[in-house]
């Protein structure tokens, strides 16, 4: 009795999905050899993602499956996006902070005050801080 409850993906559907995947493979090769400018990389990733979704929905039959498995895949994918996103927030913006110093801001303020005490007439004493902190 067990198999009678299972969804059977029809052969026709499987053949159509396979044909779609072959078409998208040819499409990604063709578009990668054209001049698409800034779309070059996003287009290739979009086509690959669409192919992956086709495989997941029909070959892996997630479309007809218990919804808990779709939840597992979604949470897993979400964590991959978090992993990638947070890592890029670090690696893409390294070296963008101009006023990185060894000491803390408090240390710098104390050093400024010490300099001011040495020369009370000085106009503006600042150690590597913007004018309007």
């Amino acid at each position: 009795m067990s198999a009678h409850g299972h969804h059977i993906t029809p052969a026709r559907t499987l053949v159509m999905v396979f044909a779609g995947l072959v078409f998208l493979t040819i499409l990604t090769v063709v578009t990668s050899r054209m001049e698409t400018g800034p779309l070059h990389v996003p287009l290739a990733i979009a086509i690959a993602s669409f192919k992956a979704i086709l495989v997941v929905l029909f070959f892996m039959a997630l479309k007809y499956d218990n919804k808990v498995n779709a939840l597992i895949l979604s949470v897993g994918t979400l964590f991959v996006i978090v992993f990638l996103g947070i890592t890029l927030l670090d690696t893409m913006y390294r070296g963008d902070l101009p006023n990185t110093q060894k000491g803390t801001i408090m240390d710098q303020q104390r050093a400024e005050e010490a300099l001011k005490a040495e020369d009370p007439g000085a106009e503006a004493v600042r150690i590597n801080r913007p004018e309007n902190p």
Binding site: V29, S32, A44, I45, A48, A52, V55
Partner: peptide, 11 residues
């Protein structure tokens, strides 16, 4: 492999 192919070979 669907992701490796364009990322490594094509773009």
């Amino acid at each position: 492999w669907i992701f490796l192919f364009p990322l490594l070979y094509l773009i």
